[in-house]
């Protein structure tokens, strides 16, 4: 009897310990990034582009990378959304119930969402070689859009699946076509979920480095054209960290902090929106 109690207590202790360890790790990551980043953070960092000798510790900031990342992530999220919506509407409105084809599409999307981003980068690169292009914002947008497409598509799909059938039935009974039901009625019901999915995909897009390494290149100037390379925040962190100059390394920490703040803000907004929109939903 006693032995059972002891075993219970030992394992419960272990469980609490590992839960705490994970929470502690999260805290440690945030504290480290914030403490290290803040000391190097300045107004210049976010309002200026790199000046001559920036990577040797001279003046300048990483506005090029912040702007580049925002352009890239917005473009990729938009493109990916345009790819996702038709697929989701097909799977949930047009296709027959329990269609084998739909299960197949879901299966492929799930498998694709596990493919590492470096593979998407390498694929983008092989496309680049095939067409004889150079790294550019457009190519970066396309590669990152493909990277986040399976995630976004399945996330929105799950939202559509949860919409009660009655809503569609009501729409059909009023004479609406499937197109109108899918794109005008169900979309509204799914809006909170869709906006969360979009924001989370945006967060994923802005934090990804391995894909843009191959396809978007890097530059010290602000993004100007779709066909020119751009700088991105994760790569700015990576490259600054790679230099031997202490001051530049400090700036890498500050850049990492900026990236973390952007990602955190996005996930907080996503949570907030999710809660706020839920009020308007027909249960």
């Amino acid at each position: 009897m006693d032995l059972r109690k002891t075993e219970e207590n030992i394992f419960k202790g272990l469980m609490i310990a590992s839960t705490l360890a994970i929470a502690l790790c999260t805290g440690l990551i945030l504290v480290t990034i914030f403490v290290k980043g803040f000391s190097a953070l300045s107004i210049d960092m976010i309002t200026q582009t790199p000046k001559g000798g920036f990577y040797l510790g001279k003046e300048g900031g990483i506005l090029n990378a912040i702007a580049g990342s925002l352009y890239l992530a917005s473009g990729a999220t938009f493109l990916s959304f345009c790819m996702s919506m038709p697929v989701v509407v097909y799977m949930n409105v047009y296709a027959k119930r329990n269609s084998g084809f739909v299960s197949l599409v879901r299966f492929f999307l799930d498998i694709m969402s596990g493919i590492p981003s470096i593979v998407y980068g390498a694929f983008g690169f092989s496309i680049m070689l095939l067409l004889g292009l150079r790294a550019s914002l457009l190519l970066g947008i396309i590669s990152v859009a493909i990277l986040i497409f399976p995630l976004m598509c399945r996330a929105i799909d799950e939202i559509f699946k949860m919409i009660p059938d009655e809503l569609g039935d009501v729409s059909y009974s009023l004479g609406a076509t499937k197109f109108e039901t899918g794109f005008k009625v169900l979309v509204r019901q799914a809006m909170p979920g869709i906006s969360t999915a979009i924001l989370l995909s945006f967060g994923r897009a802005i934090g990804d480095a391995a894909t843009v390494l191959f396809t978007a290149g890097f530059t010290d100037s602000l993004p100007g054209s779709l066909l020119r390379p751009i700088a991105t925040l994760p790569l700015a962190v990576f490259f600054q960290l790679g230099t031997p100059v202490a001051e530049v390394k400090e700036r890498a920490y500050a850049s990492a902090l900026i990236l973390t703040i952007i990602v955190l803000a996005i996930s907080i907004i996503a949570r907030f929106l999710c809660r706020k929109f839920t009020v308007h939903i027909i249960k």
Binding site: I22, C25, I29, L200, G207, A210, V237, A256, S267
Partner: peptide
């Protein structure tokens, strides 16, 4: 934890 970018 899931959302922190890998570079961070």
């Amino acid at each position: 934890l899931a959302g922190i970018p890998s570079v961070v």
